[in-house]
Design a protein around this nucleic acid. Structure first.
Length: 635
RNA sequence: GGCCCGGUAGUUCAAUGGAUAGAAUAGGAGUUUCCUAAACUCUAGAUACAAGUUCGAUUCUUGUCCGGGCUACCA
């Protein structure tokens, strides 16, 4: 028997009762997990259904006979739980007693996890780069990470939210050099452009310059003029030019295309502005004061911008790591790995790990010049995090394009026998795509986070103006309401889809406010609160049997909340909550359209329905909170 | 080439190996003397293809076709 810190769910009780019945009838051991239970399809009589097929083989009985036998035993021995049954084909449909559901309404739906199952969990998400503002993909990441952390907390775990800021590297230097060259001293104050956007603008400016200079260099080197090119690149370029010219553009298209790409990369790295950016990176690593100062200044602009965005979308972290402070931490792993024979050193001094036995490749962990690569830095950071917060589980919310990287990270730590290696989980989520395909910053098809949030809020304003009477609200209330609805629509849209799946965002059609949406659920909540403002349920609901179908359906749904929360926590899926809350809201809408609450046919029914409204509103508020979505009292 | 994902109504998403594959939206038809019509009710519409395992397959296995990602001494 498991310790009962939580009220056992009805499904669990059905399973245990059925297992007991099987054991009693057949004198064989059965466990609750042997029993498959699902909700009964609406076209059949009953609430929960036991699937008999899986039991038939073991017992050597006909499904119908087994079902009747079980149903009879259960209604006799568990009359408190079941009032009726029927058997159709291989399914035993059981009808639950009204009293069981009514009793459930008396206790609060708060879930208390068992202390023994509580884990220390670190959740890392957001992971922005400081060279450009946040975009739609970051929003999915932020909403997911924040929500998963809250779900795990609600399920009783000790959770630490973290963020790793990628604040160093060549991409930052690109923004810095472009600002130096073209910025003319521009600041967020002087331009009234949000800091992260301003820095992002110079990143784009740098990319433009690279493109132009690349074209120039291409023409120049084709004419055999290699002035300004680093000596070690000249030979390679000459070889590439020759190779490309020798290939037939039609017959050997693919091969040629590959070489052209290679030449492009090489030439881009040789453009004057890139040479300057690379020099800047070297200067940064050497701590050259004026470079560090510029870097600090521009990063400060970006952080101010990020803070605004984070505040607006409701993201927060317990701890922020900066790559500039952690990127050297992985070095010691390299020596350790070589010592233990997990890594090997090549003649040129570079260090590798051979993962071919695991079906992967050889992976570089240290460059020949002795500097760390991405994976080395992540090794160091994983260790650092563990020292600060000895986690049982460390969840990385990172897009699925990094599946390979994360696999390698975990594998290396396992090979190094790190105690925390097993707890590393990649919450791999699909990319947000446009109808035209993937968002590409090069092609300017990236949906900016601030823009889309602003647009959603504007849209909610327009729609609210059509629906509500603005005179009912103060201006402050209206502003807050638009934020609540606009962000609710956006968050729900991004969280209702299974995290693992990629999803399509259509900016034309934007995000709906009807149907399976945040505002639909917010609206349901507001209407429920509106009823409850007029009258609160009394202390006891009294006897309101028999229950109507919709009353019962709603009660059954509400009873499932703790189980749903557990499922969401174990699968790291806010979508489970979103789907559930939507089902609750939809069922509740049908319910109070069909049955009057305040003008109910009897006092008992009125009290029952008021209690149901209250419980539904609470469940919606709680569930939406786990998604980071506020619910209004009125709208 | 190798490895990893995915393919469900026109569209966007659901479905611990279980009954007649659910929703939303777009389409068609209705519901405001009754607690907010951002709602409710009805209607029509889908598992890429082919084998296999199974009492039963959207789900598991294999193959084919079609998308996407990764396969950097970038991060």
């Amino acid at each position: 028997m498991r310790p009962n810190f939580e009220p056992m769910s009805l499904v669990a009780r059905v399973k245990e009762a059925t297992a007991a019945a099987l054991e009693s009838i057949n004198k064989l051991p059965f466990y609750a997990d042997d029993v498959v239970v699902s909700t009964t399809k609406p076209e059949f009589e009953g609430d929960y259904t036991v699937v008999l097929f899986s039991l038939v083989k073991r017992l050597g009985k006909q499904p119908e006979a087994l079902g009747n036998e079980l149903g009879a035993w259960l209604t006799v021995n568990h009359g408190d739980l079941f009032t009726a049954f029927n058997v159709i084909k291989g399914f035993l449909n059981l009808t639950l007693a009204d009293s069981v559901l009514l009793a459930g309404l008396e206790t609060p739906a708060v879930f208390r996890p068992t202390p023994s199952s509580a884990r220390k969990v670190m959740v890392e998400y957001s992971s922005p780069n400081t060279n450009k503002p946040l975009h739609l993909g970051h929003l999915r990441n932020n909403f997911l990470g924040w929500s998963v952390a809250e779900i795990l907390k609600a399920a009783g775990h000790d959770v630490r939210k973290t963020c790793i800021v990628n604040d160093r590297g060549i991409h930052i230097c690109k923004s810095m050099i472009a600002w130096q060259l073209f910025g003319d001293g521009a600041t967020p104050q002087s331009t009234t452009i949000k800091g992260d956007h301003l820095v992002g603008d110079y990143y784009v400016r740098c990319e433009t310059a690279i493109k132009e200079q690349y074209e120039t260099l291409l023409g120049q080197t084709k004419k055999n003029d290699y002035s300004g090119i680093e000596p070690e690149a000249v030979d390679k370029l000459q070889a590439l030019h020759a190779a490309i010219d020798s290939l037939d553009p039609d017959k050997e298209k693919e091969k040629r295309q590959k070489l052209v790409e290679e030449r492009k990369e090489l030439l881009r790295a040789q453009t004057p502005i890139m040479l300057k950016a690379r020099q800047m990176l070297v200067d940064w690593e050497n701590g050259k004061p004026e470079v560090i100062e510029l870097w600090k200044k521009m990063n400060a602009w970006v952080y101010k911008g990020f803070d605004e965005t984070y505040k607006r979308i409701g993201t927060d972290f317990d701890k922020t790591y900066y790559e500039s402070e952690t990127y050297l931490l992985g070095r010691r792993f390299v020596d350790m790995g070589v010592e233990r024979g997990v890594f090997f050193r090549k003649e040129d001094g570079s260090v590798w790990i051979d993962l071919t036995a695991e079906g992967l490749d050889e992976k570089l962990v240290l460059r020949k010049d002795g500097t760390s690569v991405y994976i080395t830095q992540d090794l160091g950071l994983a260790h650092q995090k563990y020292e600060e917060f000895p986690y049982d589980q460390s969840i990385y919310v990172i897009a699925d394009e990094q599946n390979y990287h994360m696999k390698v990270l975990k594998l290396i730590l396992q090979k190094l026998d790190m105690p925390y290696a097993g707890g590393i989980e990649h919450l791999s989520y699909g990319m947000v795509e446009l109808p035209s395909g993937r968002m590409k910053s090069r092609e300017g098809t990236v949906v900016d986070a601030d823009d889309i949030v602003a647009e959603m809020v504007r849209e909610s304003e327009t729609r609210t103006a059509e629906k509500s009477n603005p005179q009912d609200f103060t201006p402050e209330e209206l502003t807050a309401l638009y934020e609540t609805i606009g962000l609710g629509a956006l968050k729900f849209f991004l969280l209702k889809v299974d995290p693992k799946k990629k999803m399509v965002f259509n900016p034309e059609e934007s995000i709906d406010f009807h149907g399976f949406t945040g505002p639909f659920i917010q609206y349901t909540h507001a209407r429920l609160r509106s009823i409850l403002r007029k009258e609160s349920p009394a202390a006891s609901t009294g006897a309101a049997s028999p229950l109507f179908r919709l009353e019962k359906e709603l009660m059954l749904l509400l009873e499932q909340y703790p189980a749903i929360l557990q499922e969401a926590a174990s699968s790291f899926s806010p979508a489970v909550i979103a789907n559930y809350i939507y089902a609750v809201a939809r069922t509740c809408n049908s319910f109070y359209t069909e049955h009057k609450v305040l003008k109910a046919e009897s006092e008992e029914k009125k009290q029952l329905r008021l209690r149901l409204c209250e419980r539904t509103a609470d469940t919606i508020r709680e569930g939406m909170h786990l998604l980071g979505i506020r619910v209004p009292e009125r709208m």
